[in-house]
């Protein structure tokens, strides 16, 4: 087991190294750089200013060859934990992302919780009571949840809460609480807002999970081992939870590796539409304006999470499913 873990961790190093190179190169591939984008911004505002752009070109060291820029970036990360500077915000990338990563994880974990709390019981129910009224209802809403794009749902909910409840929409707290210290009232206000992104992002996830759970469980329910257990007089609920559900959970665990990164980078559009202080809008903006160290760092962190997630799911699978060998 130890050897298995070590080997897995060793694999991560070259993977991450390659990922960092690919990230850096891909971000630089589009022609132009941050200053072209700044010039475009200024051009759109009607203030055409060549002088300023030339001043800043040397400021950001955008003229050096790519491998020099990469070397400097990597050296900063490895030796000082310095992910570089965000060109647009002129602060360290690390100062910029931790706050947002916190919100992202908070919202994502709550969403994950929401998904599992709703989807697993419903999935089990609709498998056990196949073709019942409840199964059809769950299936119906499940498919709607899958079919409606998240951002559309977000817009719809924002419209409804604006039109009929007069709520201030966008952001996680109402405007009067922005920049205020935390208080009970602000926390309640947060709760009034935070359910919306959770439900929006959660519905499609939950819908998919219901379908997968139902299908997996249906495969297991009619296996001989279930009949055996039942014949031995085991109670129906205990039987269900102990054997078929446990086996049916297998695919969830193997996909944890994908959940982690999708929690960070996923739902960018929802976050933009709902104006959430998460990493999504930051990454999108960074890519649009070619703020390369910011974008590169976010992508690198997401990749790191994928690799770690894969490791976790490998370990969990090995632990939960004795059929898997350590080779």
């Amino acid at each position: 087991m130890m050897g298995f873990c070590l080997r897995r961790i060793m694999y991560m190093i070259p993977t991450l190294f390659l990922v960092s190179i690919v990230t850096f190169v891909i971000i630089q591939l589009p022609p132009g750089d941050y200053l072209d984008s700044l010039a475009a911004d200024m051009g759109e505002s009607g203030s055409d200013n060549t002088a300023v752009v030339e001043t800043l070109r040397q400021q950001y060291g955008l003229g050096q060859p790519m491998y020099v820029q990469y070397y400097k970036w990597m050296k900063g990360i490895l030796l000082h934990g310095n992910f570089g500077i965000s060109f647009e915000k002129n602060v360290l990338v690390t100062d910029l992302i931790w706050d947002r990563l916190g919100w992202t994880f908070g919202i994502s974990m709550l969403t994950l919780l929401f998904i599992w709390i709703t989807a697993l019981p419903i999935g089990i129910y609709s498998a056990v009571r196949k073709y019942s009224f409840g199964d059809y209802t769950a299936t119906f809403f499940g498919f709607i949840g899958l079919a409606v794009p998240n951002f559309l749902l977000a817009l719809l909910m924002m419209y409804v809460s604006f039109k009929y409840f007069g709520q201030s929409v966008g952001g996680l707290v109402s405007p009067e609480y922005i920049g205020e210290p935390w208080s009970q009232a602000k926390f309640i206000n947060l709760l009034q807002h935070i359910w919306m992104p959770i439900v929006v992002v959660g519905t499609s996830g939950a819908a998919a999970l219901i379908r997968i759970m139902r299908a997996n469980l249906l495969d297991e329910l009619y296996r001989p081992y279930v009949a055996t257990a039942r014949a031995k007089g085991m109670s129906e609920f205990q039987l269900l939870m102990k054997y078929p559900v446990r086996v049916a959970l297998n695919p969830f665990i193997s996909t944890i590796g994908w959940i982690l990164p999708s929690l960070v980078s996923g739902e960018i559009i929802v976050a933009v539409v709902m104006n959430l202080p998460t990493t999504g809008p930051l990454l999108l903006r960074a890519l649009l304006v070619q703020d390369m160290y910011l974008a590169g760092s976010l992508i690198l962190i997401v990749s790191l999470l994928t690799v770690i997630g894969t490791l976790i799911s490998d370990l969990l699978l090995a632990w939960i499913d004795p059929r898997i060998r350590y080779q």
Partner: peptide, 11 residues
């Protein structure tokens, strides 16, 4: 095209 590419090309 993207506007920064457009600007890079025409400048």
């Amino acid at each position: 095209t993207d506007r920064s590419r457009l600007i890079a090309l025409h400048t």
